[in-house]
Design a protein around this nucleic acid. Structure first.
Lengths: 235, 235
DNA sequence: CGCGCCCTTGACCAGACTCAATATTAGTGG
DNA sequence: CCACTAATATTGAGTCTGGTCAAGGGCGCG
């Protein structure tokens, strides 16, 4: 269950009604009706412009949604974490590709099931509203933040309960936090609207400033969470 | 009703179920219960971090949602057009400021009304899904497009039914389209993640290339819609 | 007509990108 | 366990796009 620990550690999209999810589906749809699927890392669930026939819920693991331009430029538009819904479309086709970052478990759902239940509709609505808020935050990052601010913001996102407006500060004597990235430099770059080299340089600079220690490429120890928070542009 | 014509001309967020809106509200809530408010241009509906007690629907006109960083950098995160809902929040506070761009008419709604009706929930869900798709598109613009591509994409958004994957091409002999901006250069810059000077230079360059004629500062004639479409980065 | 606001243009600068070389890590098989 | 390979990450040098700062122009309104 290594992948579950990793996802929990990322703390992406904190505050979703994750615990309710099983109960909600059980109440409104016979659990026998809900198909599940396991994904290995870097497996595609659906491609941009495929007919959008089904929607999905992420049970565990992490998935990214990305869009491509004809010349190959890529933008990762969402990082989906436990309890999130994805694959809902207004039109007939998916507007982006869904690809797993880690091992993952997904529920496969029929859109019609949702339209018939008020409880499910409410659940879907709340997920979408939470997503909108992270999209707004991400638009700010992409449109207005420097490379260093983007990388710092990205790392801070992985630290649960810190960096919010009501941040409790360090828990005790030490202000450290170990985080697992589960994304390559290229994927981080495509999420932050940067190049792989710029992401790498920013992380090296953070290392030089004594804010992080790199254990492995995807295991980073933030040695001063408060210091990291100061360079996100939000404080 | 000049402002209604202007909004219609922008063609922002095409495809929303605008026509259903009055019927939907009438069915589920006595129309007497729904308060309305008129807004003059550049009037604020709510500020970022205000308690999110109500939600709104835009009846006519255009509204922008923006976020600010402590040092004053601004990002316009959404442009709201006719029929869109705004002010829905997952948490207790608004995550952005809502300010009118034109004269506008809004409906003031109570979140509880929505939670009780399946029809309304469906309507809200569809609005949110459509918004998510535009946010994805906008993330691509902010993260991966050049200044010229951003401005061209912005102008193309104002042209209904053109630039999509199933673009019908020019209607007849001429391939022109007059558009009304309803936004200052500063607002456009803050929406596209650029500076006012860069937006201005991009528009001047389009003029030099013979793709647009500037009638007034906020009235632009696109003389070759197909040519404009070619430089959005999407073709 | 004159004032103020917004927009445009120019010159210069800086941050991020590109291209290229090198280093590190992860994975494979002996 | 180590050697070898392929993939990924880091670092450096040079370039370029878009930002900054400053000056000038145009338009609307009193």
């Amino acid at each position: 269950m290594a992948y579950m620990e990793r996802t929990a550690a990322t703390g992406l999209n904190e505050g979703h009604p994750v615990s309710d999810v099983d109960r909600i589906w059980a109440e409104h749809i016979g659990s026998t009706k809900v198909k599940r699927q396991h994904l290995r890392p870097h497996q595609v669930v659906f491609y941009e412009s495929d007919p959008a026939e089904r929607m999905y819920e992420l049970v565990s693991g992490t998935i990214m949604l990305y869009k491509l331009l004809p010349d190959g430029r890529r933008q990762v538009v969402e990082i989906i974490s436990q309890g999130d819904l994805f694959g809902l479309q207004y039109g007939k086709y998916y507007d982006c590709t869904a690809e797993s970052l880690t091992d993952a478990e997904i529920r496969i759902l029929d859109r019609r099931d949702i339209d018939t239940s008020l409880g499910l509709q409410q659940h879907v609505g709340r997920c979408l509203i939470a997503k909108m808020e992270s999209m707004h935050e991400h638009a700010m990052l992409l449109g207005r933040k420097s490379a260093m601010e983007r990388v710092a913001s990205f790392l801070m996102r992985m630290v649960p309960n810190r960096g919010m407006q009501d941040c409790p500060g360090p828990e005790g004597d030490s202000d450290e936090k170990m985080i697992e990235l589960t994304m390559t430099r290229q994927e981080i770059a495509d999420y932050l609207g940067l190049t792989i080299e710029t992401v790498s340089r920013a992380i090296s600079e953070l290392k030089r400033r004594g804010l992080v220690k790199i254990e492995k490429q995807d295991r980073i120890l933030i040695t001063r969470v408060c210091g990291m928070c100061q360079i996100t542009g939000m404080h």
